[in-house]
């Protein structure tokens, strides 16, 4: 990484920054296409956006069903208020904006207009966690922390295009309010290689392993799977438990995973405060399980602006960083299984 660094520094270049690895299989706008497919079957589905249809993959639905799409302008508060109104009269809205604006700007409207009456409104937040280099104004590093405290709300953090495609009909079918951490644009396709189906409220063990269990959510499940494969080459046996539903948390699966003598690590694209790590920690503590937990998460600070790969490396979300953290936690030394390997693999 360092020796071959180009002279010119990486640039932020874009909202459209993708976190897909070079050459990775991707699927284009999976949310927009899934919503459009569903809307063919369910005429009560409607869409809204706050001047961000094009940037939340909602444009696919808008173009397919122009008379079922409502452009609310850049006004996130009234968008969520109006979504509540649409639900009150029997429609099933999907309302999209960036996660920061859904949670910070419009939270009062989400909470009181949508969640308290328990309406079937599906809030879709793009750029969750650290998925843009634009700096704190666009990095929704604490959206889960804000929303986990909201009663009635179901929260889904999908890993890839497979998760998104299967989650959309499930969210529409769920009677209450939901929040989807949207991955948009060219979204990696990963989970089709596993015996996996998205089930609302259920965690899924994607890999078994005797030494370590990575409890992961969102795009970090992709990184956890890559890290597990790399650690396998170093003779470390790593399990991955994917937790796409953050709330309600699949506490049974979490407890089952943590009641072992394996190293337990949580992986999330979110601040260490109030996200998956703390949700798992409280689940263990409340059940009297004293397992130590290693949280891989963003630091409790306002993050920098910059190129996304730079930032994922710096803040510990890259596959390299996950591998390094697990190795450090397992304790290195001459007896570590990988001690003979002079050059650690890089992505």
């Amino acid at each position: 990484m360092t020796s071959t660094a180009p002279r010119k520094k990486l640039t932020t270049s874009a909202m459209i920054a993708s976190f897909a690895d070079p050459g990775q299989r991707t699927s284009s706008a999976p949310f927009g296409h899934a919503l459009t497919r569903l809307a063919h079957e369910r005429p009560e589905i409607v869409g809204l956006s706050a001047d961000l249809a094009k940037y939340t993959d909602m444009h696919v639905f808008r173009d397919a069903f122009p008379d079922r799409f409502f452009q609310m302008g850049m006004a996130e508060q009234v968008m969520l208020g109006a979504a509540a109104g649409l639900a009150e009269v029997g429609l099933v809205p999907f309302a999209s904006t960036y996660s920061v604006f859904a949670t910070r700007r419009a939270y009062d409207f989400l909470c009181l207009d949508i969640a308290e009456p328990g309406l079937n409104v599906n809030v879709v937040g793009a750029l969750p966690g650290l998925t843009t280099g634009y700096g704190p104004s666009h990095q929704a590093t604490e959206d889960l922390a804000i929303l986990r405290g909201c009663p009635n709300l179901t929260i889904v953090d999908p890993c890839d295009s497979v998760d998104i495609e299967q989650a959309v009909p499930a969210l529409a079918a769920a009677p209450g309010p939901t929040y989807l951490r949207l991955l948009r644009g060219a979204v990696p396709t990963v989970l089709d290689e596993y015996d996996y189906r998205f089930e609302l409220g259920k965690a899924a063990e994607l890999r078994t392993g005797r030494d370590v269990v990575l409890i992961s959510t969102g795009l970090m499940t992709m990184r956890a799977l890559q890290a597990a494969a790399r650690l396998e080459a170093d003779h470390v046996d790593v399990a991955v438990l994917h937790v796409p539903t953050i709330k309600p948390l699949d506490t049974e699966a979490v407890l089952r995973a943590a009641r072992t003598d394996r190293l337990v690590v949580t992986c999330e694209n979110h601040t260490v405060v109030g996200g998956l790590g703390e949700a798992v920690a409280s689940t263990l503590a409340f059940a009297g399980v004293g397992t130590r937990l290693v949280p891989i998460a963003l630091p409790d600070e306002f993050l920098a602006a910059g190129a996304l790969p730079t930032l994922h490396d710096r803040y510990g979300l890259s596959t390299d960083a996950v591998v390094a953290r697990v190795k450090a936690e397992l304790g290195g030394g001459a007896h570590a299984p990988w001690a003979a390997d002079p050059t650690p693999a890089t992505a």
Binding site: L10, T11, T12, S13, A305, G306, T310
Partner: peptide, 10 residues
């Protein structure tokens, strides 16, 4: 808009 610049895109 480059890494570590004082002039971020936003």
């Amino acid at each position: 808009g480059s890494d570590d610049s004082r002039l971020p895109m936003s």
